[in-house]
């Protein structure tokens, strides 16, 4: 399809979104990621039955933690789409990039620069 999506999006492949842990999301922010989003299969279509539901819960927990510590919970999102929806994948990437751009960079990066 040769679809384009923003080059700022870095893909971390996992066998199933159920593998994603809050710790992975938190560490990403600690290392300076501006946003994190999980792209899982459609709800009800998980090959492992409930992996994408688990991911959604963990994403929600990460949102709460980030909100508590003063980072916008909006920086973490969960999306569901099927493997044949390439155009939607590219659209989500653009949407998320736009959303993060509006929120601005991860304040941690600025804080680290200041401390250095």
């Amino acid at each position: 399809m040769r679809l384009k999506y923003p080059s700022s999006v870095k893909i971390v492949r996992v066998p199933c979104t159920g593998k994603i842990d809050i710790l992975h999301i938190m560490r990403a922010f600690e290392k300076g990621a501006d946003g994190v989003y999980a792209v899982g299969c459609m709800e009800g279509d998980c090959h492992f039955d409930s992996g994408n539901f688990r991911a959604r819960k963990r994403v929600e927990q990460a949102q709460k933690i980030l909100h508590t510590i003063g980072l916008s919970g909006e920086r973490v999102q969960m999306y569901n789409l099927s493997s044949s929806e390439g155009p939607l994948f590219a659209q989500i990437a653009r949407e998320m990039t736009e959303k993060i751009r509006k929120l601005g960079p991860n304040p941690i990066k600025l804080a680290v620069k200041k401390a250095a």
Binding site: L23, F29, E30, T68, I69, G70, P107, I108, A115
Partner: peptide, 11 residues
């Protein structure tokens, strides 16, 4: 992770 992010953010 959460505490590191919080305190860094607080300077």
């Amino acid at each position: 992770s959460a505490l590191r992010i919080y305190f860094l953010n607080q300077g």
